[in-house]
Design a protein around this nucleic acid. Structure first.
Lengths: 223, 223, 223, 223
DNA sequence: AATGAATGAGTTTTCATTCAT
DNA sequence: TATGAATGAAAACTCATTCAT
């Protein structure tokens, strides 16, 4: 009968990871203190070190679990049956949905990228990100290929390049959205971008809902 | 005859900024030490503080001068006369050219973004970035409008939205390129992306040079 | 059973305060180093900051506890029943007794005064000192009033002014004594001053002990 | 013809001493910076070191010149012919007059005392102060002796002890006055104290001016 | 396992003093 | 002589990590 203990251990671990996500997002890795993480997780500082070898280890575990969680979610989204266009719309929808959470997550993601960029060639972060984006690209590529085969898409690029560009665009939009730069991620703007992307992929999107007249708004939502 | 002194002072200032750029790029703001910056600038630690009020000030000055430099360059690029398409190609060319320098600059830029994200609402970094991107978007918007008037472009979005999306895409590509994620910024890939963007904007790009047969490569450069 | 821990904490705190008193007295606030205080308290520098927020805080706490201790003592002295003259003699006795400790304390007290003088209008130190001296004056005033009512004293000043002057005189004597200036605080001199003060207050003091012939010594102890 | 140069040198020296007096009074010795002194004296930092060997030396010179100036003034006051009482009144008048300047000077004087207290046994400051107060006491003693001989004074103490006590009282009053403790140094209070001191010395002072009725006010100016 | 007090290496910053011009 | 940029030693303070309880 050691499962309760194991469960408890798991819970504690997750509580600490949650707290760490908060604090790292608020303060950034370097400025975050173990004291604060412990306090927000409602454990003692010593306990932190029973679950994680070091601050760095805690950050790495958080990164890995975030990536795993993300990937599981997106896998679920893509795995659904349907036409290429339906799949693509589902992915776009999910991704854009993320942007609304980006106010919370953005800083943390930036920290992950920053850490990756600072690593020696092919460190854990870089490698993990490359692997993850590699898989993302594969999945997107498959969608694009399916769309090409079925005649749904008339791609500007080849499927793989299209996947790369779309992924880069997603991250670019997320970045700008988070910083309040050129794109404000309200629902209408997102819908506009989505429609544009679909048309750029050679797909004529369905008309927008009644409150967004096709002509003016689609042509220039922010003119 | 005080120019020699002033020049010397300017040089010292620039030498310190250069060194700081290196160290901040290598280690990130929080991990970088003033000791190391001083050492790399070949001045004493005290001298650092004769030129900059604090580590934070040094970082901010570096950010501001980077932004100013960037903006001056891009102004020059856009100011050139020509068709909308020529202007757009010039901007694309310049931007993509930056990516090759991104191995050096990328981490630093990430630090800038990170700092902005960590700021209180409307801090210096955020404000400066928003201003800068605001101006970028204006310039891009003008190009798109010119292209629309002249009938060169048949835009998917309105000019302003198009500008926003293109800017976000640029940064997304830069980010992915730097991290070695989905896009490798070699000359051929860049050319491919450029052609695709132009076509997505409704412009039929000129055929590629002889070594890049239209069919296969354009369709899928990385298949 | 948390008292042992609390006691230990209290002891540590007191040990640090003691060490700080030593070092501040030796070197003055500005010249004292936290390193030395830690060393003298036989704790690490970090521990200092577990108990006190800053060097300034440590100094302030030391000041406040000194004042509190002083005041508690003098309260006890004054609270005793007796004639006004007996009370006055008790206060004088206590105060003069302090002077012998002044070799140790004097510098520290000077630091307190100095800090108060350097403060913005109505800082903590100034306010605390003003409060403390306000209470001292009240107590002394009461004694003088009692003496007047009972016919013991024939005051040169009104009771409140008398209290003020006597307090100022005490501090002046303490200051001069500490610096080895005009007054050396040996027992005989103190006795002489005490007798003089009493006479100046209109009280005819009791004759001195046999080894201090009234005539010569009272008239000029240091001629 | 080097006198103009010498004069200039003297002026510079005095300008620096003046500036130093200001800054030391404002900030205290340890917190004062040579930078600020130089700026306030309108000379370069290097020039400071042409006139004074070090910050410590500057402080010491300032102390010595302050003491010399003080002493010259008081010598002049005492040297005037007259009865003992007239001389005493002149000294009291001068001293109390100082108190009104104490807002400016007080902090500086405290710094001097503090430095003296921190010195090794018989350092420059201590020695100088002891010498100065020794001479003060001598002069006061002479006045008291003259007063005794002429029958003007009926001293509580012997002349030398009286001198010591009076000097200590002066400094105590100055200290308290500066800190806004028990005594506020307005003209009326000073007059009251002066009258009281004279009576304590056995001299019946002249009646106060018409606006200060003898009875109430003399008895208790602040009741 | 959990705690949290203790540690001390590491960092930013200041400022008296020097010295080339 | 005057200047003020350069220096670097010194000091306050932080915080990841340890370990006795």
């Amino acid at each position: 009968m050691e499962e309760p203990t194991d469960d408890k251990k798991q819970n504690r671990r997750l509580a600490i990871l949650d707290a760490a996500a908060d604090v790292f997002a608020d303060r950034g890795y370097a400025t975050a203190t173990c004291d604060e993480i412990a306090k927000r997780a409602a454990v003692s500082k010593g306990t932190l070190y029973n679950y994680f070898r070091s601050k760095q280890d805690l950050f790495t575990q958080l990164f890995l679990s975030s990536v795993a969680e993300d990937e599981a979610t997106i896998d679920g989204v893509i795995a659904q049956p349907g036409t290429a266009r339906e799949k693509l719309e589902a992915v776009l929808g999910y991704w854009f949905e993320q942007f609304s959470r980006y106010d919370d997550l953005g800083r943390l993601v930036l920290e992950f990228w920053s850490t990756a960029a600072a690593e020696e060639e092919d460190g854990t972060f870089t490698q993990t990100l490359q692997d993850m984006y590699g898989r993302y690209r594969q999945r997107m590529t498959q969608i694009f290929k399916q769309g090409q085969s079925s005649g749904e898409f008339d791609l500007v690029y080849g499927p793989s390049m299209a996947a790369s560009v779309v992924l880069a665009l997603f991250d670019g939009i997320g970045l700008h959205s988070m910083m309040g730069l050129s794109v404000k991620m309200d629902a209408k703007t997102l819908a506009t971008i989505k429609r544009g992307m679909l048309r750029a992929l050679g797909v004529e999107p369905e008309p927008l809902a009644e409150n967004t007249p096709t002509g003016g708004d689609t042509k220039d939502a922010d003119a």
